[in-house]
Write a protein that binds this DNA or RNA. Structure first.
Lengths: 318, 318
DNA sequence: CATCGAAGCGATTGCGCAAACGTTTCGATG
DNA sequence: CATCGAAACGTTTGCGCAATCGCTTCGATG
């Protein structure tokens, strides 16, 4: 009878006596409501899909953690899927989310996200894009790349470096493009020239970053300082520098994007830009929730401020 | 009409002509099957719940990643939830999973998991426990703690250390207990004595590990080598050692549990036991899938072998 | 050409729930 | 005491699907 539904959901008044009976019965039989059936009826699942391009990347890990926490607070369950930076997988993940009728999706777009994004738009699935800005039909949330890179270059240049190289991140990502542009403009702002072959534009993982770093450091006139575009490239660069037997910052200075918890255990401690991952995740979940509640809102792009943690990996040029 | 269902699921023969018509219609209207309704009918959701006690811990991150990958391969979606090591949250997460009618659960038990585990048992939800062995009514999968600790102590002792301290992990966990026991027996096996106050038994995070390390190193006759019980305590110990201005391994040797990708960027590179996280995650998902397929199987406890990565953080006692 | 069986397919039901709608009870009011 | 209306609760339907059941065809066979 409908009364038990109403007791469970407190959706209309039920006399205390009857309510007790119902609650006792529920307790006695260990009844657990079937969310599937409920969702089918009310056309809302209280769940969201979280499609991340690389779960194991610590940067995304922090975001996942924050998203999960905020969603838990909001009473949402989260489906987690790894798109592995593969547009095909990305599309099928988004499809699977839709088939499970998630109320919304948080997506870290791959390098070629158009098909997945069009699908979301077509199906009118609420969605917020994180980290990489890919389509302004949706809410987007990420970091302020221009000012972050500027802070980085200003810091490095303040030690007197004239020859600064850049090991960029993955091809295709807005993040990568923006940071490269910011690298250019920040050099200019410091009155520095962009030297030929000083930007390694495409590095998909630590190994390619290591190779790229070797390439740059093998130039006839190599940089005296290196800036890295994300955590993978930082690791890759550190490895290459070690392999060449160079010391940081004695022989070469290093600074880059993406802080991590143990950065202070590196020797020397690395100067890095820390993104507000927790805040990105939290706001993404909150934004999505708001969007689910009222689809009328017009999409907004949020840029969060990152903070430069100046430590000891930069020094005067050799 | 039922034919549509049969076309979609290839569950009985449909004439090619009719099938084409159906497929064209599906394509034309952009139809996506409603998995909710399907699940309600067939009483199976092709989804599993992954309840982790601390998502942001890199150890679990690697496991999450592997679980997700294997589940994707098996056609399962995964619900991710963080129990935050809190038994109450743990129970409500498991409840939420059940209400959503997941086909099974993978759980990294908290320090007091009995209520959640009893619930799972009562509801006959297929489940596999990871990392921490908590109840043999369920499949369990974790690492071989005895032999791993033994390898660690043998390694440290081989440098001639007589006074070895241990910074253990979180209270209540089987993992923590087993490693403490193994620490004792491994010392004995090397003919070494367990000195008073040399085991710090309970450290919930890096900060408490730092404090514990300071306490041990302040002993009148402090250890010349320190072994740590997990990645958090390793970081905590490194920080404390740094704060005291000691050098590794010159002043003190250090080795412990849980490798991480960038361990080779620490200075010195840390000697650590690497757990097969990817394999733990993969097997957990596979085991769960098997259990879902046939509930009759009797529960098994799988112990995976870890590998000691001997690097440069251990040396002769000062 | 009547019969039969297999191939192909449509009507219908029920999964567990929420909500619309109907029914009963009962105290208040004229 | 008849009437009314609000309070309390029961009946029913439909969400979208899978699967059961049973209805057509239609070619083969005697």
């Amino acid at each position: 009878m409908s009364t038990v539904s109403h007791v469970i959901n407190r959706t209309r008044f039920v006399s205390p006596a009857k309510a007790r009976v119902v609650n006792d019965a529920i307790a006695a039989m260990g009844y657990q409501p079937n969310e599937l059936a409920r969702s089918l009826k009310v056309a809302s699942t209280n769940s969201v899909g979280l499609a991340i391009s690389a779960i194991s990347n610590p940067y995304f890990t922090d975001i996942i953690c924050a998203v999960e926490a905020e969603c838990a607070r909001l009473g949402l369950m989260v489906f987690l899927s790894d798109t592995q930076e593969d547009p095909d997988r990305e599309l099928s993940v988004v499809r699977a989310f839709h088939q499970r009728r998630v109320d919304g999706v948080i997506l870290a777009p791959s390098g070629a996200p158009q098909r997945a994004i069009d699908y979301l738009a077509e199906k009118k699935l609420p969605c917020v894009l994180i980290d990489r800005f890919a389509d302004d039909r949706f809410d987007q949330i990420g970091v302020e790349n221009q000012s972050s890179m500027r802070a980085l270059i200003d810091h490095v240049a303040s030690f007197g470096h004239k020859r600064i190289g850049y090991i960029a991140g993955q091809p295709g990502l807005a993040t990568t493009r923006e940071r490269i542009e910011a690298f250019h403009s920040s050099l200019a702002a410091n009155g520095l020239a962009l030297l030929p072959h000083y930007v390694s534009p495409e590095n998909v993982d630590t190994a390619s970053a290591t190779a790229s770093t070797h390439a740059i450091l093998s130039l006839p006139s190599p940089p005296t300082a290196l800036v890295t575009g994300n955590n993978m490239t930082t690791i890759g660069a550190v490895r290459a520098i070690r392999e060449r037997g160079l010391s940081i910052p004695g022989d070469i200075s290093l600074a880059g994007f993406d802080d991590f918890e143990w950065a202070d255990c590196f020797e020397p401690r690395l100067t890095l830009v820390a993104q507000p991952c927790a805040e990105i995740g939290r706001q993404a979940a909150a934004l999505l929730s708001a969007r689910i509640a009222s689809s009328g809102l017009k999409p907004q792009a949020v840029r969060l401020q990152a903070t430069l943690h100046a430590r000891e990996s930069c020094g005067r040029p050799a």
